[in-house]
């Protein structure tokens, strides 16, 4: 589904990704872990197409198509979704209106009719129930005054509405208490299917108890330096990253 081939990326002339390779097949969940500053958030921004990040070399291939030159909204239309580490506030725009605009923009891009208000309402009801969001929450301004947990639940709600092929969860667990974590993880798990994939970026193995990954990668200094199964996450939790850093730096 997604192939990253030798990606080199920089922001404001600072090299962050230094030849990153990653392949994700349909149905797989990949966890990306690593110390601060390793390039985890850059990786998600590069896949989503944030302009500030310049891809200096390598190819991003999504479903067989190189998407390096596609605008972020075109990538979204193809089924790439990113749950933001810090969701953005848009004053005066309700969550309902925002997700309506998003769902309809995607449908139009796919050559489908926009949903009628009735259909939209039904879909919103169904998906918000999954995430235990109440109606009042949906009529509040997007992310404005939301608690950390509410923001993340809202991200996963939008994901559920858009049903992406590839979901990138960028530190979705940060700022979540244990109940919110379970709700968010449930939301993600409900979307699991043989066709859908996810990249879970996290510092803590805790989230991976709920969203069980097929692979765990360690990102360090702009490259993936170690890959393993879910047991690697446990090992990292126990031993930290220093042993990996030493391994790499001594090479």
């Amino acid at each position: 589904m997604l192939k990253l081939k030798n990606i080199k990326a920089s922001v404001e002339d600072k090299d962050i990704l230094k030849g990153l390779n990653l392949e994700i097949k349909p149905g797989e969940i990949h966890a990306i872990m690593g110390p601060n500053g390793a390039g985890k958030s850059t990786l998600s921004s590069v896949i989503a197409g944030k302009e500030k990040f310049s891809v200096d070399a390598g190819e991003i291939e999504f479903e067989g198509e190189v998407i390096n030159d596609l605008a972020p909204e075109e990538r979204a239309h193809k089924g790439i979704f990113m749950s933001f580490q810090h969701p953005i506030e848009i004053p005066g725009v309700t969550t309902t209106n925002f997700v309506k605009a998003a769902v309809n923009a995607k449908r139009v891009a796919e050559g489908k009719e926009e949903l009628t208000p009735g259909e939209m309402l039904r879909l919103i009801k169904e998906k918000s129930a999954l995430l235990e969001l109440d109606r009042k929450f949906l009529s509040r301004s997007l992310n404005e005054g939301f608690s950390g947990g509410e923001k993340k639940r809202n991200e996963i709600f939008q994901m559920a509405m858009l049903e992406p092929k590839l979901a990138i969860l960028d530190e979705t667990d940060s700022g979540l208490d244990i109940d919110a974590l379970r709700i968010v993880a449930n939301g993600v798990n409900m979307l699991r299917s043989p066709e859908r994939s996810a990249i879970v970026i996290t510092h803590y193995q805790r989230l991976l108890d709920y969203i069980v990954p097929d692979f765990v990668h360690v990102l360090y200094d702009g490259r993936i330096v170690k890959t393993g199964g879910k047991e690697l996450a446990l090992e990292l939790e126990e031993k930290g990253y220093d042993w990996i850093k030493e391994e790499i730096d001594n090479k």
Binding site: A48, G49, A71, E73, H77, M82, G92, A102, A105
Partner: peptide, 30 residues
């Protein structure tokens, strides 16, 4: 209007023109 707001909308599939309209309508909602 911040670049982050525009990117957030873009990432959800909303193009920049529509994103601006959405943000401006939100700003003028009252």
């Amino acid at each position: 209007i911040s670049e982050d707001q525009i990117f957030y909308c873009n990432q959800r599939g909303i193009d920049t023109e529509k994103a601006v309209a959405l943000i401006v309508n939100g700003f003028g909602k009252e």
